[in-house]
């Protein structure tokens, strides 16, 4: 219930934060919303010597449009994303995923950047961020680099973030016409984490055929992944229930699903299929409405 002692810094600017991160190195952890980190610290499963709180850097907390791109600051909370009119209008997938995270209180404090950097295998965002082909901006005193979502998630709780780097924002294209998306999730009843979470985007061409789909899957493997075989199976097709169902069968192709107390690998695999099918069907329906 009580964390070990640590030194605390609350920089007001990104530059200050970067300097602190550089100075304290591996001993330091960044504190964003704290809803993954603080419980671990209270149980003393994590005991960083230094906490650098990004909560005072207001520049990191914004949702804005840049042309056809949506840009979201890393310190934006789940609740802000869930309720953003801009996102609901122009790219609802991330908002839909945000609404499925934890509970009201957690969504009021938890942040996009914190969740992504923690890279929990059952977190909701990674599926959506993958399906959105988002790009993540990582900044350090050495400079700024952009990493595709695909390359950001490396393994269980492991990301492409290098020492000294801070995830500052993510950006992705707003939905064009004839595009629909959906995030569906099977909750683990105790923790609310995803046993399976599937984020999909379906883009139709002017004839109503499938131009492209994106399917991000979380909860199944040590890291979230793109179900590329499903996507390939749908490309160029006139989508219907049967075709979607067939393609969804490949939702866990090539991955070795995890087992735990709440779901065996077999069940996770099967649910990946069910939820991929359902999410695709819903996204398709929404895409058709936007025709």
């Amino acid at each position: 219930m009580i964390p070990r002692g640590f030194d605390y810094f609350s920089p007001q600017t990104l530059e200050e934060a970067l300097a602190l991160v550089a100075e304290h190195g591996a001993e330091a952890k960044l504190l964003a919303g704290g809803h993954s980190l603080l419980p671990m610290m209270k149980l003393r499963l994590a005991a960083p010597g230094v906490l650098i709180d990004l909560g005072r850097i207001s520049d990191l907390r914004a949702i804005r449009e840049e042309g056809e791109q949506i840009v979201i600051g890393a310190m934006t909370t789940h609740a802000e994303i869930e309720k953003s009119g801009l996102l609901r209008r122009r790219a609802p997938l991330l908002a839909e995923a945000a609404a499925e995270i934890g509970d009201v209180q957690v969504r009021n404090r938890g942040t996009l950047g914190g969740a992504l950097a923690h890279a929990d295998p059952a977190a909701d965002y990674p599926a959506a961020v993958l399906a959105l082909d988002a790009e993540l901006t990582l900044v350090s005193q050495r400079g700024t680099r952009t990493v595709a979502a695909q390359d950001f998630f490396v393994d269980l709780l492991t990301t492409a973030l290098e020492p000294g780097e801070i995830l500052t924002e993510i950006r992705f294209a707003a939905d064009g016409p004839r595009t629909g998306s959906a995030y569906l999730k099977l909750h683990q009843p105790a923790s609310g984490f995803a046993i399976v979470g599937v984020a999909t985007r379906v883009q139709l061409d002017s004839k109503g055929k499938c131009e492209a789909t994106a399917v991000g899957v979380t909860g199944v493997a040590p890291k979230a992944y793109r179900a590329t075989q499903v996507e390939r199976a749908l490309k160029g097709k006139a989508l219907n229930e049967r075709i979607i169902a067939q393609a969804a069968g490949k939702a866990a192709a090539g991955v070795e699903p995890l087992s735990d107390l709440h779901a065996s690998a077999r069940y996770r695999k099967a649910m990946a299929e069910v939820f991929t099918r359902r999410a695709l069907a819903l996204a398709l329906e929404r895409a058709r409405r936007r025709q």
């Binding site: 504190l31 809803h35 419980p39 149980l43 709180d53 909560g55 209180q105 404090r109 105790a190 923790s191």
Partner: peptide, 28 residues
């Protein structure tokens, strides 16, 4: 101690938060 029960809920700037998963310094 895992932010799951909500008994510690308070309003912080009008929003419901779990006060067991916030440092007092964060609330400054």
């Amino acid at each position: 101690e895992t932010s799951l029960c909500g008994a510690c809920t308070v309003l912080l700037d009008g929003q419901a938060v779990k006060s067991c998963t916030l440092l007092a310094v964060q609330a400054d």
